[in-house]
Design a protein around this nucleic acid. Structure first.
Length: 618
DNA sequence: GTAGGGTTAG
């Protein structure tokens, strides 16, 4: 990466000239006290508060200029380090490194402070590295405190080659035996794409691992979605006798959440209680998120109600959790309760709220809150927010309105929004429009498998069988592979994973017999397989067979075989549940008298006595 | 004087 390219951009952003002339001119007469005293007063000012809002920033800038301290690096570094506002840091660094600044004052501490300020603020990681390079250019030595900042910035940029060159510098300067540096190195490597092996190498080479090292490594696995490995590493950590702290437990819970492993999550909770791990807000938030996403949203709600201190993350987790379970009314009223409690919603909270409205058909509520976003809360809606709105209109069957909405959007619709529209066109008979949008989408995204599936489904509904067959050929020609659907289930502290047509389980013969029996019972109960969704070019009977071997059905058969009658079944799908599995599961819940809780990619389905909580909107 | 690992959505 070229950091030399950053400087001109940096200077443009800061625009030194404007700042200097628009504020009060610094005539010598306006400086009434001695420079030294002013410097002290100014430093004391920053001690008391952080300058992270714009009015405060402007005020402080004027103040600095009035006192004639605009070229005093000490004052300016302090200013930068107490601020989390990027403009403020830019302002400070532009003066510190301006041509008339006193370079004799440049030292390691000064650079470390500026680098830290940039490394801690999002969207300024490049600048942190730019000033690290500048530091070396000025002949100022980096010390062991410099590297955690620099490595953190590199982690944010996710560039492996850069990380490796920094690693080289660390070794050359002899800071590679410092625990803080090593731990940050694990974090840096595991954040860069393709860096996990390097992270593990650092981790394995460390003479003494503390809870931070373990957490850094576990966190790396969690970020990659390697949740089973993360849990495995946690078990190893316990075996070697390192006590996990609250951050380790946040990561463990995060892995449970990813797996949808409720039993494991409950175990983690009791472990926290037993080991008296400090339950801070972040840990409570992770617990709420885990319970909501592992299927027990009532427990999540209970934890939330018992919290003494809540952050926006706590509110958002529980709002999004309720939305995911189709409990939109409760989600919306909780959002309104939050506003009433004086907690300002952020962009993420709005996504939770809008998805709640969308999943529960609350169109008017959704529109009202969407309008309030910009007007009342000054949050500019992002494509995700527009996406929620499109989704909401489509689910409510207002396809024409959804199409109008997209036309009027100030942002270009992304493929996700287009796919939402296409599904709605398919469902509500706007086949010609759907076909056109899909063709356009395939031109933009030719390697995305689900675009072809959408087109195939549209052709099936139009009875254009020849065109439908052709799609399969196109997909084969392009060498596209379907993401295999898989379903997980937890049984006796063990996690079982099924893929379609799976024969790797020891019990597979019994499972397939059970699937066949289920098929017979389903037909007797009046269920008709939805074969039009099968993309393969095979005859109807084989299609039924393909549907019966869906991972979800295998997992349900496995659960019926291995759990006592009447107990609920919980399964986790990696993709969205297919139409056929959805209607079959409704029948299964009735025939076998089981409550079946399915988590798919988007939300939860609670099947009971032949009905699903999603009311067929999903 | 300065340092390490974490939670919400998509």
């Amino acid at each position: 990466m070229q950091f030399s390219a950053i400087r001109p951009k940096l200077l443009r952003t800061i625009n030194v000239a404007t700042v200097t002339t628009s504020s009060s001119p610094h005539h010598p007469s306006s400086v009434t006290t001695s420079k030294r005293a002013a410097e002290q007063r100014c430093l004391a000012l920053f001690q008391d508060h952080t300058c992270n809002t714009f009015p405060k920033l402007a005020q402080t800038q004027t103040h600095i200029l009035k006192l004639g301290l605009h070229n005093n690096p000490l004052v300016l570094t302090k200013f930068a380090s107490t601020s989390s506002d990027l403009d403020a840091i830019d302002y400070a660094s532009s003066f510190i490194f301006s041509p008339d600044a006193d370079t004799r004052l440049y030292d390691t501490f000064l650079f470390n402070t500026i680098i830290r300020a940039y490394a801690q603020t999002s969207q300024s990681k490049e600048r942190a590295l730019y000033f690290y390079n500048a530091m070396l250019d000025y002949g100022v030595w980096a010390n062991k405190f410099t590297y955690p900042f620099v490595l953190k910035a590199c982690a944010g940029l996710r560039v492996l080659s850069l990380g490796q060159s920094l690693h080289g510098s660390v070794v050359k300067l002899g800071f590679d035996d410092d625990a803080h540096v090593q731990n940050t190195m694990i974090h840096m490597y595991s954040s860069c794409s393709g860096g996990i092996e390097f992270a593990r190498k650092v981790f394995d080479g460390m003479p003494k691992l503390d809870s931070v090292s373990w957490s850094a490594m576990i966190g790396g696995y969690v970020r990659l979605g390697w949740s089973t490995d993360a849990i495995g590493l946690f078990r190893k950590m316990q075996m070697v006798g390192v006590r996990p702290d609250e951050i380790t437990m946040v990561l463990v819970l995060s892995a449970c959440t990813d797996l949808g492993a409720l039993e494991l999550g409950k175990w983690a909770e009791s472990y926290i209680e037993k080991e008296r791990v400090q339950k801070n807000v972040e840990l409570c938030n992770a617990l709420i998120d885990m319970f909501a996403k592992c299927g027990d949203v009532d427990k999540a709600l209970k934890l939330f109600r018992n919290m003494s201190e809540r952050t926006i993350v706590s509110w958002t987790s529980v709002i999004a959790g309720l939305a995911m379970h189709g409990r939109g009314f409760e989600a919306v009223s909780l959002f309104e309760e939050m506003i009433g409690a004086g907690v300002a919603p952020d962009d993420v909270a709005f996504i939770g709220l809008l998805s709640a409205c969308s999943h529960s058909g609350l169109v008017e509520k959704g529109r009202k809150h969407f309008d309030s976003m910009a007007k009342k809360f000054k949050i500019v809606p992002r494509i995700e927010h527009y996406g929620c709105m499109v989704d909401m209109l489509c689910r409510a069957g207002q396809v024409k309105e959804a199409l109008e909405f997209v036309k009027k959007m100030p942002i270009k619709p992304n493929p996700i929004v287009l796919r939402t529209l296409i599904s709605a066109c398919h469902a509500h008979g706007e086949l010609k429009i759907g076909e056109n949008i899909t063709k356009q989408l395939i031109r933009n995204e030719p390697m995305h498998e689900s675009n072809y599936v959408l087109l195939s489904n549209i052709y099936a509904k139009m009875s254009h069988w020849d065109k439908k067959t052709k799609i399969r050929e196109v997909m084969d020609k392009k060498g596209m592979t379907k993401t295999p659907g898989s379903t997980m289930i937890e049984l006796d502290n063990e996690i079982y994973e099924f893929v379609a047509g799976d024969k790797s389980q020891r019990q597979y013969k019994e499972i397939y017999e059970m699937v066949d029996e289920m098929g017979r019972e389903l037909k007797r109960a009046g269920y008709a397989p939805t074969t039009s969704e099968v993309l393969l070019d095979i005859d109807e009977e084989d299609k039924e067979d393909a549907l019966n071997r869906h991972s979800e059905k295998l997992a349900i058969a496995f659960a019926l075989l291995n759990t006592p009658p009447g107990t609920p079944i919980r399964i986790v799908k990696n993709l969205r549940v297919c139409n056929d599995c959805h209607s079959a599961t409704k029948f299964i819940s009735k025939i076998y008298n089981r409550e079946i809780v399915v988590r798919d990619r988007n939300r939860f389905h609670h099947f009971k006595e032949g009905f699903c909580s999603c009311k067929d909107f999903w």
